[in-house]
Amino acid sequence: MKFLGAISRYQKLDPEQRSFIGNARRKFCSTPAELLEFFKPMAVFDKSCDEARAQLLNFVILCGVLSFLGLIAIGVLSDDMPVVIPIVAVIFLMIFPLLILRWLLGRVDIHNNLRDFVVPVVNLIGQDTVAGHKIDLELDLTGKKLASKLKSQKKDDPGWFSYPKITTSIYHDPWFRLTTDLVDGSKLMLTIDDQITVIDRTYKSMSGKIKSKSKAKVKHMIRASLALRHKKYAVATQNDVRQLGPELKLKDGANRQLFSLKKTIKTDDIDANVDPKLCVELLGRIFMTVQPATKKGS
């Protein structure tokens, strides 16, 4: 019974963590160790919560199938097996508490991006920050289709009883912002903005029925920026870094040179989490391209 484990883990969370699960939106300014200490129990809970919900769904399906088979058995055996009726009734009635439990766990569920993206990225970036140095982190895991995130909406309605009717809604969800200084003196900024396009289509089927379909497309726009110090890294020209491709933006400053790389990932799954590897690879590509500054006198 995994839901028992999930409930027990939820009860172990402190009020601050429960509150974060409730709002799923917050700005942090803490050391990587503090952030991990804060997120780790929630990540472990979220994992067990997902497993518990999956298990509960399986139980609901099992109960439904057993109830159906029970009803058939009652019909076939009629009065011969009076014990079957209460058993079938109990199995059928179990479906409701299981569904309620699953719904309750769903209410305290948090987007998988927390445990599969935020925690690993903070963990990895934390390896290269100076001990005790803080990370500025802005998270918004509230949901991608909130009214407040609606950027534009276009309705294509041919009129009364005319089909298809298509509504295209575009949401903008800037859910991840991380800024910190690395151990080599570079300033790092990682951002992820999701753009969700939801197409709701109402149409008349061949049989004359009115049907509705909703389709979502998600674009994860990941941007990794590194402001490298001239003291540490040789100033690069566009020609030096042309292998980084046209997505690179290069900006020169008095003491630093800013490298900014973008990557866009498309998916149809609105709940899909972002792979931390995508961010790591963008940063890795920049570090693999730049050259160390020549030491004076050498």
């Binding site: 991990l36 997120f39 472990v44 690993p120 963990n123 934390g126 390896q127 590897k277």
Partner: peptide, 14 residues
């Protein structure tokens, strides 16, 4: 899994 230990395995793979 959500500890520093994970990073060391991840970096080795990377």
């Amino acid at each position: 899994y959500y500890d520093t230990a994970w990073c060391y395995g991840y970096r080795s793979n990377y």
